[in-house]
Design a protein around this nucleic acid. Structure first.
Lengths: 214, 214, 214, 214
DNA sequence: AATGAATGAGGCTTCATTCAT
DNA sequence: AATGAATGAAGCCTCATTCAT
């Protein structure tokens, strides 16, 4: 239906890709439980039994979706971060830009990873958590690297780094969704906001200028 | 079952509270779709028709839950922020502390608001978004107030403020979940991390020391 | 449909009986796999969800059917055998008569027990086997009792008794189905055939007059 | 899968035999309904369309299986019975021995004939009944022959003979399954038990020594 | 002679919801 | 104020069967 004249007799790999694409859309829009295999099959332009023949069950289909999308996002971010032998702040900037660009260009993929996968309990949450941890580890690595270069590195503990990485990833996620919903906010702009907000604050921290109540 | 001998003929207000409490637990644990009216009725210690008599439908029940929990969270944060005539950073600190404390003490409530409500599409996401906007507005207000006191306030635009508030709220949410999952992290500690991370970065920004690529 | 005006709002016990009755018919006619919950519900005059509410699943429904029918058959046979303080041959005669009468009057019940339950693998076959063993044990007891009264009891081993009981039960089953399919064969007649065939042969055996090849 | 390297381009007769062999196993293990054409094709080492090309449908496949296995069993028994010009009891003994040996050596075949075919309703039950009638007719013939040789043949009616044959076949079936399930029971032993049980009882009958109640 | 690709139809099961008391 | 009895609608999944090569 989706394509008008349904192409028949395609190789398995092509059909699987179509099914995963359809599943991403459907899961993003309705969530795991509310998405129906019927709709996914129709979006993919195939019959339901074929979806089961190739992907086995709703659960395996969702898992396959999460894995594929998580790989795609990780690949994009990793390439941006790794490519340069630049200083940590430049690399973080590159990674954030790539991340915001991905979230903007693949909103369904981002919605599945950020919203749906994490709220469906095991085994899905675990799958998504694994990806988030990889990203958080990247970020923590960059923060740690910067900290070691600072003049008073001893002021920052490992837990500080972990907490900061959590905060930075969380604000990135929040900004990504906000940017997707707010007209005219570009990936570069979101990345710049975050660098201003986070990295320069980080600088203060390294100079041991901590905020304290009273 | 929940209370052994089921109390009969309670006033409506009491019964409604029992039902909403049960619903919060059930929705937090299973999500909106997977939670069943059967389980909620049993947890509440009443029959299903009574749930329908008072709350009308699963959708209205979920909406009622979101409203009640959102009100509770807002009330806690608002009281902490408003009570003082203190400077903005102190008030933000107080608000963050109250927020982290709430998330830690009412994990089911926080799970429903942060995870379930936002992923179920309309009308629930809207309900949750409204609450989030109120909190973001609080934060934006505090940031704006601080900015106006800074010597070079003109450097910060309204959109800057909005984006910063989004980032701050996002990192708070991320830290709250992280704190709930990580042993030994207290609300005060999470709030301190966030103040260090965010507020001092904000300070730099106000001095117009922006980070820029290259 | 089955009853014209569907009686509404009956007590659970009554509904359960109706459902089990319908299930006996359906399983007897089509077998476990081919019987459909749809048909059973319709035969019982209720909706499918009610069948599931009370009997939980097709598997549990079939198990409940086997148990109920096995109990009924056992009760009929046990009463016939136990009631008398008569000699073993009279008691066997009474048991066989009762058995053939049951098989003739409740052909669906007998079909489920003899044909369907035993061919569906575990756990059903086990349930049916348990009942068959109880009956076989009855029979073996009577044969053993008769043997002990015979003048040369030592000629008969335990394995002889077990094998003879198997043979007797098997011929009873075969005769029961044959009698059900052949017009004009009464329960008494089938029982008499079997007594002639089996018990008098047994007598020879006890006199140690064994048949041997050559 | 079954043979490692799948042999290609075999003559039709060979392929059909492979398929029927696979079907016997599958039907014996799972029953007609639960057996799947997928499994049968895989067991046979061919693709599903080939099974359909040769055997047309699941129903025809099952019918072909029943026919082939019934022929095999009948052939074995017939040969044993016919080969000798011996007295009826010797010939019955030979037939029973052959039957028990077949049931022991081809348990899947025996399971299909005795358990599955008879429980699947028409047209399968009819097919199996036809084979059973042929065997019963053999037995009835032998009994009749013996009766005519007895000194008081007039005491035995045709219906007596038919009933006795039913009983004998039934006990043979029961003993066959029992022997298959009970360690250490040989075909000869089962046949001997049955001859002792049945034939000598038959002898009494022919002397008109009938058992009667009271 | 043989198969990878594909589907119509139907079965089991669950759930939100209502009726009658 | 409260509930036992009951169902319409829909979802996941499987299977026998066929098409095109």
């Amino acid at each position: 239906m989706a394509d008008g004249a349904r192409a028949r007799r395609l190789p398995r790999a092509v059909r699987e890709r179509q099914m995963l694409d359809a599943a991403v859309r459907s899961f993003a829009r309705h969530g795991y439980q509310a998405a129906s295999m019927d709709e996914i099959a129709e979006l993919a332009g195939v019959s339901k039994p074929l979806v089961y023949l190739y992907l086995n069950s709703k659960e395996e289909l969702f898992t396959a979706v999460i894995r594929r999308e998580a790989q795609a996002l990780l690949a994009v971010v990793a390439e941006a971060v790794v490519d340069r032998g630049a200083p940590p702040d430049e690399r973080l900037w590159a990674g954030l830009s790539a991340f915001f660009a991905y979230a903007a260009e693949q909103p369904d993929s981002w919605a599945v990873l950020s919203r749906q996968a994490r709220t469906q309990g095991e085994p899905f949450a675990g799958e998504a958590a694994r990806m988030r941890e990889e990203i958080t580890a990247f970020v923590a690595g960059l923060i740690g690297e910067a900290a070691r270069e600072a003049r008073d590195a001893s002021a920052i503990t490992e837990r500080d780094v972990a907490a900061l990485a959590q905060a930075l990833v969380g604000s990135a996620e929040s900004l990504a969704s906000w940017a997707n919903e707010t007209a005219g906010v570009t990936a570069k702009e979101a990345a710049a906001t975050l660098m201003n907000f986070a990295w320069s604050g980080l600088g203060n921290l390294m100079k041991n200028e901590r905020w304290a109540p009273r």
